[in-house]
């Protein structure tokens, strides 16, 4: 039996599985890539072979075009294992966004799980996280400080709806990631009984259509156009975070700036961005979920990737795990 540290390496392209000769979420085009989910800092175009869930592949096609790979796509439904050069690879739900997966690698009797990005709370747009037994568990640490405790999604959505009744003449412009966050907010609004048309920035339309095709019902949505923009007082408009302060937003009437992100927990951070209604809505695990996950997975050894790894390594060690930081450059610290 060989320990994963002997067959996993961090290279400049990303995390590399030596015997399998493939990368996990590589940042540059490579021969073979296992892609955990469709966010741009994990899924890049131009690999020869791409191994991912059918949903993630659909997202990549939608973002990068049908020819995002040079040789072949290898759809891997959750739970179905595949051998790549003698390494047994399987994907398991991560609960992060539609199609997001953890990658389990098994080689010569030892196993490692790359969780990618994940969360533990319910989300109608994706399959919930599944703890997968393994020898080494690789966890993200985006919100790995005990100050990060995400409130229930319903409570944050209720705050948005309250504001809409309090300021019915203002256009509520919500900055949210176009992939995943946008659709889970729409679903949560529907679950809270909001039936009105929800308006979208042009950059979000294609992904919303894709979600609808994949069976996620978003209710009535429409794109913001130069013609209808002036009439959107009192409505909810979703746009990518970068468009909140863009010239694009000027055409909207009496904008009330809303942002949906785990970072909105930190007041100064929200205020600095000029956000008037910060919603703490995240598709990453908060501190409690991270710790719960270490316990649920039960792997004796923990590797910590992007984020606040110092606090999580410290806490995991206190909890009796062997823990170390794995400094992965290139993953965006602000990836939501």
């Amino acid at each position: 039996m060989t320990h994963p540290r002997d067959w996993i390496e961090v290279r400049k392209e990303g995390v590399w599985c030596k015997p399998g000769d493939f990368y996990i979420d590589p940042m540059q085009p490579v021969h073979a890539a296992v892609v955990t989910h469709g966010h741009a800092d994990h899924a890049r175009a131009g690999h020869d072979h791409v191994f991912a869930t059918p949903e993630t592949l659909a997202i990549m096609r939608s973002r990068y075009g049908e020819a995002h790979f040079t040789e072949a796509e290898h759809p891997m439904p959750y739970g179905q294992a595949l051998e790549i050069n003698g390494v047994r690879v399987s994907l398991h739900p991560a609960g992060h966004i539609l199609g997001s997966a953890q990658a389990r690698l098994e080689y010569e009797g030892s196993s490692i799980v790359f969780s990618g990005d994940y969360k533990r709370r319910a989300d109608p747009t994706c399959v919930p996280f599944e703890p997968v037994p393994c020898d080494v568990f690789v966890t993200e640490a985006t919100f790995a400080l005990p100050v990060f405790r995400h409130p229930p999604l319903e409570a944050e959505i209720a705050r948005l709806l309250t504001s809409l009744t309090q300021f019915p003449d203002r256009c509520h412009l919500v900055g949210a990631y176009a992939l995943g966050k946008c659709q889970s907010i729409i679903c949560a609004l529907r679950a809270a009984g909001y039936q009105e048309t929800i308006y979208l920035h042009g950059a979000m339309v294609r992904l919303c259509e894709l979600y609808q095709t994949l069976g996620i019902d978003l209710g009535p949505v429409a794109v913001v156009t130069p013609d209808n923009a002036k009439t959107l007082a009192g409505t909810i408009v979703l746009c990518p975070p970068s468009a909140l302060k863009d010239r694009w937003s000027r055409r909207l009437p009496e904008v009330l700036t809303v942002a949906a992100s785990g970072w909105m927990r930190i007041r100064a951070r929200a205020k600095q961005k000029g956000v008037e209604l910060p919603l703490v809505i995240s598709d990453h695990a908060d501190w409690d979920e991270l710790l719960q996950t270490l316990t649920d997975v039960g792997a004796p050894e923990i590797w910590v990737t992007h984020g606040r790894d110092d606090a999580l390594v410290y806490q995991a060690t206190q909890m009796g795990f062997t823990a170390q930081a794995l400094h992965l450059l290139g993953y965006e610290d602000d990836s939501e």
Partner: peptide, 24 residues
């Protein structure tokens, strides 16, 4: 109530005591 190491990492990150305590 809170581990001193985690308190100090948190306070550094948040920057303000009332908010740090509120979150922690």
């Amino acid at each position: 109530r809170v581990d001193p190491q985690l308190l100090s990492l948190s306070h550094d990150y948040v920057g303000e005591l009332s908010e740090t305590v509120a979150h922690l």
